[in-house]
Amino acid sequence: MADLLNPVDWLLALLQVLLFALAAPLLAAWVKRIKSRLQNRRGPSLLQPYRDLRKLFRKEARVANSASPLFRAAPYVVFSATLIAASTVPLLAVHLPTAILADVIVLVGFLALARFFLALAGMDVGSAFGGMGASREMLISALAEPAMLMAIFTLTMSAHSTNLSSVIQHVLDSGLLLRPSFLFALLALLLVAVAETGRIPIDNPATHLELTMVHEAMILEYSGRHLALMEWAAQIKLLLYGVLISNIFLPWGMAQQLEPLPLLIGLAAIAGKLMLLGVVLAVSETLVAKMRLFRVPAYLNLAFLLGLLGMLSHVILEVGV
């Protein structure tokens, strides 16, 4: 542990967090753009989310007069919890001091903390939509979280570690292996990621149609910098899941040493993987229609089943003595 308390490493880790936050809107814009292209539209520029954020940060914040202090504190809590979660995910390099700060269960915990405050903020103003969004969000997350942890447990059982760096190192060390458990875990995580980041078919980030909103319903009352923080946090969460999936299952190209050239290669690699993942997401969003709320449990059951099968096939096929 102590050898990792090296100031240069910490500086790099902080830079990585910064990069995480700054690159997040780009991924959202990329998905939007691909989606527009698929639907024969031109789509906004890749810089549009940045312009939106800048505009929102400059605007005056408006708060409902029935809101409590929690309403104003929540965006900061949501944003910092999401950013802390993101800081533990290896982005360019396998080993960084921030990754040993917290393992993957802590990551899930911080995302849960963000969601907790998001849901409370939704209920704070006392409008029907906020309550509806909060209620639905908590249902979805309650079903998604065990599925996600089940998939992660499958990985950690074969890597014998819940530390993301160790898991990635384990995958890198074992080379190309066709593991049924990883396949199932990947599918489960993809399904969960779609549900947790509020994408189609679970939720629609572009909608303001009252009865179908989940995430949008909770942040309906926000404006100005508060809204900007909430939106930014959501974009960071999307990037977080993307990085998590691509770096765990396809860790190749990540920097093993903290030197300029490997880091550059790592940057190129992760950019490529995320672009690919973005295309996959955009295609699936174009092909699939949004589900009714009460179909979501079946969807998440499938994710959980995949996670469970991953675990079972790991135990039975891969280590079974």
Binding site: A61, V125, A128, E221
Partner: peptide, 10 residues
């Protein structure tokens, strides 16, 4: 500054 007002509620 923050301005207080009625909630939007769609």
């Amino acid at each position: 500054k923050v301005r207080y007002g009625d909630p939007c509620d769609c």
